[in-house]
Design a protein around this nucleic acid. Sequence first.
RNA 1: CGGGAUGUAGCGCAGUUGGUAGCGCGCCUGGUUUGGGACCAGGAUGUCGCAGGUUCAAAUCCUGUCAUUCCGACCA
Length: 481
Amino acid sequence: MAGKDNKKLVAEITSMDEDFARWYTDIVKKADLIDYSSVKGCMIIRPYGYAIWENIQKILDARFKETGVENVYMPMFIPESLLKKEKDHVEGFAPEVAWVTHGGNERLAERLCVRPTSETLFCEHYANIIKSYRDLPKVYNQWCSVVRWEKTTRPFLRSREFLWQEGHTMHRTAKEAEERTVQMLNVYADFFENDLGIPVVKGRKTDKEKFAGAEATYTVEALMHDGKALQGGTSHNFGNGFAKAFDIQFLDNDNTLKYAYETSWGVSTRIIGGIIMTHGDDSGLVLPPSVAPIQVVVIPVQQHKDGVLEAAEGIADTLKAAGYRVKLDDSDQSPGWKFSEYEMRGVPLRIEIGPRDMAEGKCVIVRRDNREKTFVSLENLTNSVAEGLSNLRDALYEKALNNRNARTFVAKSFDELKDIAEKESGYIKAMWCGELECELKLKEEADVSSRCIPFEGEAVSDTCVCCGKPAKKLVYWGKAY
RNA sequence: CGGGAUGUAGCGCAGUUGGUAGCGCGCCUGGUUUGGGACCAGGAUGUCGCAGGUUCAAAUCCUGUCAUUCCGACCA
């Protein structure tokens, strides 16, 4: 009995509905995604966590390239003078940049900032290589890490160094830049919804919330299990503001000099935090099959008995040959231990095979999300796995969507909004006049920020929820990570 | 950046009025087991977060610092 209690201790994680914050950090550690380093806010991404990121990279990188993106690598240091070239941009980032002041023992003539984002570097380079309209468009992306010296940090959600991709493009016309901005936002939205099973709201950020130096920022917003919003990815249209600051001009076919139009767009390892907080449960992580490092784990039961291990190997080989990421766990741990372990790690499907199944030419497939068991014949295995993974993705999406719907509210008056903000956690749809003053007041008095002005969505009333003046903009308000 | 909590073996923790560190799990060896975190026997593992200070003596008291975490403020 004593042994049993101890085992329970090992497996225990905080219940997500009792303490979501603690549940999150438990999962991140116990699913072996990260470890802490000795520098605040700088985390070690462990093999299992990094494998998720690699899968995210693989999928997105391929999608980017389908749209003509080329990958490059920019330096990690930005001279102070270069960072300062665009006023809004430097003001936005200055409070959280890390500086390099010395090389060895010698003080540098000009200090260098560790990139918090690379607009300035791309612009400097583009100014050098863009001369003619024939040089456009330029559609570059880089996968790298950036540094932002955050005060409060949380694994994946807010760290001082994080991995991301940043695409930076230059275009001949404003129209083309706008199209690229929307195109990349759609790539993100599709990835979130179809690959990760995370429903998103596509929309535009208010001026207050948009990227420093951008003309327009578009965003995909996801709602987490606890009702807080997470900005999943952003796509910015800079117009030609940066081009003017960095003198990126080209000679057009009418023989006049014109400024180029710029966009940038990015997603980061924060996505992993989003996956955890959208799909996870009290048994641990639940990973969408598209990015799960292990899609199917095969667990032999009574593996020492004749033929069991061979049958399990056969199953693993069959599935590997069909292109799935499969792990056969033939370690000495008890089956029960393995079940719990792979549930903690969020493996979408588990296959159990033991003497009883073998006698019937079958195995058991268990889904991670609902623990539903199905007995399937070995001949049909590949189809059953395909179906299981696909159904699981759909179920994850469905569940997340239901959560979002249940947590989406409508407010027509200020009092109503305030009341909802106090009692509920989620999105509040309400009209807004467009004035910063009202946005600040809602933040101040109702503690909600504007998440986005959705591309799709009907007006819920005619007047601003705050000041009562005529309003046409629908805004999703909420609390964000 | 402000307030609270924590830091002792890989993990979870105990350690009394200061006397030089212990428990469970895990790990290693051997054996028995295996359909929801198995069992027996034997074994290994510590600059007590770090740096100062007080003391004959510090995990324990004092100061500083770093990290984790929660709440708040801030937040491309």
